[in-house]
Amino acid sequence: MPVNPELQGRQYPPTAPYLVGREKVREFARAVQATHPEHLDVEAARAAGHADVIAPPTFPVVIQQLTWNQLLDDPEAGIVLERIVHGDQRFTATRPIVAGDELTAQLTVTRVRSLGGNDMVTCETEVTDASGKHVVTATSSLVVAGEAA
């Protein structure tokens, strides 16, 4: 089944609030080999003016993944995990994510196009905080291999 071209423009419901834990931030920071103290040390983060440790710039992928799951679970989308290759990724932030944030994410499929037997799906996940303010937008292109590939 190819990717449904009518997917372009589709918006999924906002995800349930994700509470960013301090230890999760530290765990993620260590996994990406972060060494900056503002990711790991509460006192260093507070001295820099943050309420708690701040997450590395790629941490939003943890929340973005929840929205990818909505896309994969959509029977009308025609996107199968096994055939996806991550093409590109971008994070555009208004502010860093801070431990204690309660974040909601909403995915919009911004573009679907065919590319040499494959389909390229571009999605934008907007992450907002508990007050509804923008925190970061995560944009991805997923290359979905065609049947014959």
Binding site: V32, T35, E38, I54, P56, T58, Q89, F91, T92, P96
Partner: peptide
């Protein structure tokens, strides 16, 4: 994981500029 490569590759820039100064980060895999 492509996202591990992406996440680790930016660390030298974070250590140089400080994490709160990173406004936008993009890569192609």
């Amino acid at each position: 994981h492509g996202m591990l490569t992406m996440g680790a590759a930016v660390q030298p820039v974070i250590d140089w500029a400080g994490p709160a100064r990173i406004l936008d980060y993009q890569v192609r895999f």
